[in-house]
Amino acid sequence: MSDKLSRYRSKRDPGRTPEPIPETAAASPGGNAFVIQEHHARSLHWDLRLERDGVLVSWAVPKGLPADPGTNHLAVQTEDHPMEYLTFHGEIPQGEYGGGTMTVWDTGTYDTEKWSDREVKFVLRGERAAGRFVLFRTRDKNWMIHRMGSAVRDPFPSVEPMLPTARARPPKDAAAYAFEFAWGGRRLLVPIDGGRTDAAREHPWLRGLAESFGSRSAVLDGEVATLGGTELLVFYDLLYDNGRSLVAEPYTARRAALEALGLTGAHWQTAPSWPGEAGPVLRAAREQGLPGVVAKRLDSAYAPGPSKSWLLIPT
């Protein structure tokens, strides 16, 4: 039993890492505990660990558990971990194997439906991770993980932005609108899933934003503008949050969900919004040399393409 952890121990120095390093594996055959740890190492991933014959058989899953049976995720098998790792969380020093921050994302029990060298079929019973999954080996250490059954979240919405209709004057029923600056930048929708975003291909600095979301999925709407000589992504809408589509929700609900995220960083921020205040916002936009103001109906859903629920009033 003790040789099951030889590879684990060979990768770790007990004088440098706070990780548990027992001499032998636990003698608890038949146990069925699991843990999923969120691991901010060189790249963000989730570690899935299933108890088996006194150790935690482990896979690193870069994008986390799939929420949709139509999408499989890569799972790379790593060394068996000791049972003490079920509750481990903390900072593994940089320069050490797996250096970075590790937190317990979920824990619970699981039922085994099949276990072989090439396929592991199981049912997770956790608070955040629940349902039937199958791990199947594709090549060497590389496996794929597949969710069986129905999806556990809404599908991502269309990535077509909602566009304002030009209008010379503010609406007369100003109390029915929120007023925001028109930034004169380039529109950008940012989908985030599994701590990653495709928008980082063009804007690498968005990797930090995506990683900060962890396993939380989102689709953000905003503009890349240059303010004070610095490129800044200004967010002003939230189309999808934590597995739920918000496009049918009114602007007020989407705006509240966006503000609750507290998005503030060196390269991104949440745009200010002023309900019912057309005149002061227009004056401030003129003073700052901005091209205009966008009036957004408080009760409007998010509809891709041109819409009369959003009005662009030039300065």
Rank of each mutant, 00 (worst) to 15 (best):
D241Y: 09
T230C: 06
E249T: 09
V224Q: 07
G229L: 08
E249G: 02
L239H: 02
R244Q: 11
R201P: 04
A257I: 04
S245D: 12
T252G: 02
R207T: 12
Y240N: 01
S212Q: 10
N242Y: 08
V224A: 04
F235T: 09
N242D: 15
F213H: 05
N242S: 12
R255W: 12
E202H: 14
L239F: 01
T230P: 01
T252E: 08
R254N: 08
R216C: 09
D198G: 12
L246W: 06
E223Y: 09
G243E: 03
E231S: 13
V247Y: 02
V219C: 03
P204S: 06
R207Q: 13
F235L: 13
F213R: 03
Y251A: 06
A253G: 00
L206R: 08
A199K: 00
D241A: 10
G208R: 15
W205I: 06
T252P: 07
E231A: 10
N242R: 12
G222N: 08
P250T: 00
G243S: 06
G243Q: 03
P250N: 02
G208N: 10
Y236E: 06
Y240A: 01
D237S: 06
R244C: 01
V247L: 07
A199H: 04
V247G: 00
L233M: 14
N242H: 14
G214H: 01
L238S: 06
E231G: 14
V247Q: 05
H203M: 11
D198T: 15
T197R: 05
A256D: 12
